[in-house]
């Protein structure tokens, strides 16, 4: 029956595309989490009234974040082709998409991290300072744990944006469901492929959202 309704789907290709999408999203998410958290911390710590208040570092970081958030992702990939080529030795395939995915998503997540950190009660930071805590201790034992539910829900939002990005990257040769839908579906006018790819992406988004909400709720002891 499946072949009757969806005559053009080759299960093997479809699974490979799905795996590539998972691969790109997951690895890019790890990279985004690390880079975004660093950016967010830098923004939070150097802002006016922050622990390391520093106008220059804050402004440079803020400009970097804003510029890369402003560039539409499809153009960002093209813009980063030389950089990707230098870093990965190729501009094709799922791994080659990672630098652009991370650089595209990290500034967005960085802002979410900054917002989450600003929500941490200043009194708690002050209490830690009054106990003689080092800045490192404050970051690792106070700021990040206290902001964790917001950091996780921010990461969920970012993951979903990343899934969208991987589809765009797919269209210009990164593989994954976007690639499959465009070349095997749209280009060949086999719309059952486009449909099944859409459904697969929606399912992946739901899975990420569910996991994100679950973890965030579990962590929230407020």
């Amino acid at each position: 029956m499946l072949t009757e309704w969806l005559p053009n789907i080759k299960l093997e290709d479809f699974w490979e595309a799905t795996e590539e999408t998972f691969y790109m999203t997951s690895l890019a998410l790890v990279g985004t989490f690390i880079l975004g958290t660093l950016l967010g911390l830098l923004l939070y710590l150097t802002m006016k009234g922050g622990i390391w208040q520093n106008k220059v570092i804050y402004s440079v970081t803020a400009v970097f974040v804003n510029v890369f958030r402003a560039i539409p992702f499809i153009i960002l990939i093209l813009l980063l082709f030389p950089f990707t080529n230098f870093l990965m030795g190729t501009i094709r395939g799922p791994s080659a998409a990672l630098p652009a995915l991370i650089i595209g998503a990290a500034p967005f997540y960085g802002r979410l991290v900054e917002i989450a950190l600003k929500e941490v009660d200043k009194g708690v930071v002050e209490a830690a300072q009054a106990m003689g805590a080092k800045t490192r201790t404050i970051i690792l034992r106070v700021l990040l744990p206290e902001a964790m539910p917001a950091l996780v829900s921010g990461l969920t939002v970012t993951a979903i944006a990343l899934i969208g990005y991987t589809a765009m990257a797919g269209v210009i040769g990164a593989g994954g469901l976007g690639n499959y839908a465009y070349y095997f579906g749209f280009q060949r006018r086999d719309f059952d492929v486009v449909l099944i790819c859409s459904i697969a992406i929606v399912v992946i988004v739901f899975i990420f959202q569910f996991i994100g909400d679950f973890i965030s709720n579990k962590l929230d002891k407020r």
Partner: peptide, 22 residues
């Protein structure tokens, strides 16, 4: 030196300032 000295000065706050995650 101040960080070390602060360990010998306890402080209690109006709004408690506890870590809710702990």
């Amino acid at each position: 030196a101040l960080r070390v000295a602060r360990q010998d000065i306890g402080m209690v706050f109006q709004h408690f300032n506890l870590l809710w995650s702990r």
